[in-house]
Design a protein around this nucleic acid. Structure first.
Lengths: 332, 332
DNA sequence: CTGTTAGCGCGTTCAT
DNA sequence: ATGAACGCGCTAACAG
């Protein structure tokens, strides 16, 4: 059994209260006794038990991170950014993979509450009312990443996905492309991916370009969606100049499939992806893509959360970070 | 403030001990009173405080995972495998990025101890004595992934890296290649990557092939090492038939650089990578590589650890999982 | 079958 | 400046 505060007190010949005081640097403790205590701590290799402290202080110095899947290409960097900041402020993170399963999310949220986390970083496709209700009921300090709630009560960190979709489309249009395909995820809900599609629509409209139903495909954001999308589009559409993809994985799936059909990128077709994941820069052709500052999203969100936990007022409830088109070799 | 066990007891008109009993399904509680308690729990939306429980039971149902960097391409899948299993057994994981910094590792280990984690999954390049000493001093139940300690006291999950390097080399040799380059990380220490090089040496020797100093390069396992390695090799060596790379990132960096020098893969040069990360299958040309069962490594290690925590005897202290050569398009 | 009580290790009044 | 004592919320004897 590791030494407890009691052992230190005995060793130093003082009360546990005094030990606690030097531990937390509170009140003014006589230099001499302070020294005695520190020596005892040193000698016993004492380290405070944070669990006991948490029970007393009601703060665990632990933060829950809820993400769909750490083994996807997108989230690791966000988590890294978050963990780096948490580490600076002496917090640790509990990682939870939800697989976008609402029940799993709820259960994690409840467990995090039981474990008395000081706050939660929440990432998901869309923010269902059941979830926001639960978060409020559990009274969990929460910052959203990549999505925001409609009422805007929760602080959030996102990019402007409508604008990002708009910019991607304009970039493709400026290259002189007319028959433009779009492969993404759900266009209905209010999530990030639907917003990208809205931006796409807007740009097409502004340029008097028509969106051909046959050239739009919705699946998820995985590579396979790129395969499927291109197959469907190639079957139905008469001509294809470019493809806008809601993720880099989809873009790579699309390019691979185009290649199978003897269509080369960018000679025959322009393709742009989204997110700028690691693979995008090693993929051949190097993928032109709309980059999100993933690391920053994680670190900024964690900073906000920690401020929130410490009751400091948050100047800005909703951070909208800049996206950027990274020009590489998948567009002419 | 959320309801406590006391509130439930009062609401149900029983003692807190009884509430605790129905909570933990211990002893035989009268069906009627059990019902009363459950109703009270329901009514108050009570959830036990795990921190308080932990203080008493000395188990937190939390496990620390120490990895170099979650934003690398290699670790997310391992972590996912581990978290999935932990979730099944009602554990949560605290994620720690060490950046292979020994001081950071030590500090994390100490904090994990303070937070009373039930166990630790440890991943690192090599296992320094300072670390094993600390783990023992802290009395942390630990399972190693990807590396093993020389004395073999800690349970571990690895692949046979010597054999893997040997297999990769033989695969390349069988293709008829003579001038074979190797790009990897440190060849001295006893880590996984050094072992791969040992396997390479063995295969070369067995086939009476000479290892040309000019065709070997050691850096780290990042893409850049591939660039640097190829540049150096191309400058010094007279001819190059194939390159064996200690990671997929390195392999992709190597191929990109070969391409810049008008050498195409696999027409001019065969290249094989290591790990089978996501990018390997979307990269062009699709990367031939030695796959490690990353998800399984994480899940098996977590299973071992949980058994260890629950004092069940571990039948096998050192799991050596199978690797597999995935034949794709970067070799003839 | 159920209640009382003593801690788990720590922070925090309230005295002194 | 320091110590005694209480309680955070829960489990685990021990009684009854």
């Amino acid at each position: 059994m590791a030494a407890s505060i009691k052992d230190v007190a005995k060793e130093a010949g003082v009360s546990i209260a005094t030990v606690s005081r030097v531990l937390n640097d509170i009140d003014v403790v006589n230099e001499e006794t302070k020294k005695k205590v520190q020596d005892a701590i040193q000698k016993l290799g004492y380290r405070p038990n944070i669990v006991a402290r948490s029970l007393k202080t009601q703060r665990t110095k632990t933060i829950g991170i809820l993400i769909p899947d750490i083994s996807s290409q997108f989230y690791p960097e966000i988590v890294r950014g978050a963990e780096d900041v948490s580490n600076i402020y002496d917090y640790n993170v509990i990682l939870c993979n939800s697989d976008l399963d609402e029940e799993k999310e709820k259960e994690y949220l409840r467990v995090l509450k039981e474990k008395m986390v000081d706050g939660v970083l929440y990432m998901s496709s869309s923010l269902k009312p059941e979830i926001t209700d639960l978060i409020r009921e559990l009274d969990l300090k929460t910052v959203l990443i990549e999505s925001s709630d409609e009422e805007g009560i929760f602080p959030s960190v996102t990019i402007d996905n409508v604008k990002a979709g708009y910019d991607a489309a304009n970039y493709i249009i400026k290259k002189g492309n007319k028959d433009i395909a779009y492969i993404g995820a759900s266009k209905d809900s209010s999530n990030a991916w639907a917003q990208r599609y809205k931006g796409f629509e807007k740009a097409m409209k502004e340029n008097n370009l028509e969106i051909n139903e046959d050239m739009v495909y919705f699946g998820d954001l995985r590579t396979e969606t790129g395969y499927k999308g291109i197959r469907k589009i190639l079957k139905k559409a008469s001509s294809i100049d470019a493809v806008i993809c809601a993720s880099d994985e989809v873009a790579m799936g699309a390019i691979n499939t185009l290649r199978e059909h003897q269509l080369s990128v960018p000679q025959d077709v322009d393709v742009i992806g989204f997110n700028n994941i690691y693979s995008a820069q090693v993929y051949y052709p190097n993928l032109t893509t709309v980059a999100q500052p993933m690391y920053d999203m994680g670190s900024i969100a964690m900073r906000m959360l920690i401020k929130l936990i410490n009751q400091k007022t948050i100047e800005q409830g909703h951070y909208v970070l800049d996206h950027e088109i990274i020009e590489r070799d998948s567009c002419k």
